[in-house]
Simulated scan of single mutants.
Amino acid sequence: MPEHTPLMRREECDKLELRLQHALSGFVEQPRAAVEEADLVLEEVSGRVTEALAQRRRTLRGSWQDDESATDTEQLRLALKDYRELADRLMRI
């Protein structure tokens, strides 16, 4: 798995960024509504990231767990490398 693969599609990020920008720009006129919208955006982002991570984990697990008899050491090495890269990436957030 390439280290720089985004967790969310660009279109999804753009929509969420637009919503957050809208909340920021509306703060002066409606501060509470702006903060509530920012809260909803963060909730949606965290949910989508959680879903994306769960899918990545299923994919990783499938690369070595589906058929233990056919999994060779090289496949396990690559799986371990992918796990390490993803974990490292998450710890840098």
Rank of each mutant, 00 (worst) to 15 (best):
Tyr83Gln: 05
His4Leu: 07
Met91Pro: 02
Ser63Pro: 00
Gln75Glu: 01
Arg77His: 08
Thr59Glu: 04
Met1Ile: 02
Ala87Leu: 15
Asp67Arg: 07
Leu24Thr: 05
Asp67Cys: 12
Arg57Asn: 13
Glu43Cys: 09
Glu68Lys: 14
Tyr83Ile: 05
Leu24Asn: 14
Leu16Phe: 00
Ala87Tyr: 11
Arg57Gly: 07
Leu78Thr: 00
Gln75Lys: 13
Asp72Cys: 00
Leu60His: 12
Glu36Asn: 08
Ser46Cys: 15
His22Gln: 11
Glu51Met: 09
Val41Asn: 06
Gln21Asp: 01
Ser63Ala: 09
Ala70Asp: 08
Leu90Lys: 09
Phe27Ser: 03
Gly62Ser: 14
Ser46Gln: 15
Pro2Tyr: 10
Leu42Cys: 13
Val49Ser: 06
Ala38Arg: 03
Tyr83Lys: 07
Asp72Asn: 11
Ala79Met: 04
Cys13Pro: 02
Arg84Tyr: 00
Arg89Leu: 05
Leu76Glu: 05
Leu86Asp: 04
Leu60Tyr: 10
Lys81Asn: 05
Glu85Lys: 15
Leu24Lys: 14
Leu78Pro: 00
Cys13Lys: 08
Arg58Pro: 02
Pro2Ser: 12
Gln55His: 11
Pro6His: 08
Gly47Asp: 15
Val35Pro: 11
Thr5Ala: 10
Leu20Met: 09
Lys15Asp: 03
Ser25Glu: 09
Arg56Ala: 08
His22Met: 05
Trp64Arg: 10
Leu18Gln: 08
Met91Phe: 14
Arg84Cys: 02
Pro31Phe: 06
Val49Phe: 11
Glu29Leu: 10
Glu51Trp: 13
Leu40Gln: 07
Val49Cys: 09
Lys15Phe: 00
Ala34Ile: 01
Pro2Val: 01
Arg58Gln: 13
Gln21Pro: 00
Ala54Arg: 13
Arg32Ala: 15
Gln65Glu: 10
Val45Gln: 10
Met1Ala: 12
Gly26Ile: 00
Asp82Val: 03
Thr73Cys: 11
Arg92Gln: 14
Val35Thr: 13
His4Arg: 11
Val28His: 07
Thr71Pro: 02
Leu76Pro: 01
Leu20Ser: 04
Arg89Cys: 02
Glu3Pro: 05
Glu85Tyr: 09
Thr73Val: 03
Leu60Val: 08
Leu53Gln: 09
Arg19Ser: 07
Lys15Gln: 02
Arg58Met: 13
Val45Pro: 00
Arg77Gln: 11
Ser46Met: 14
Arg48Lys: 15
Leu60Ala: 10
Arg84Pro: 02
Lys15Ala: 04
Leu86Gly: 06
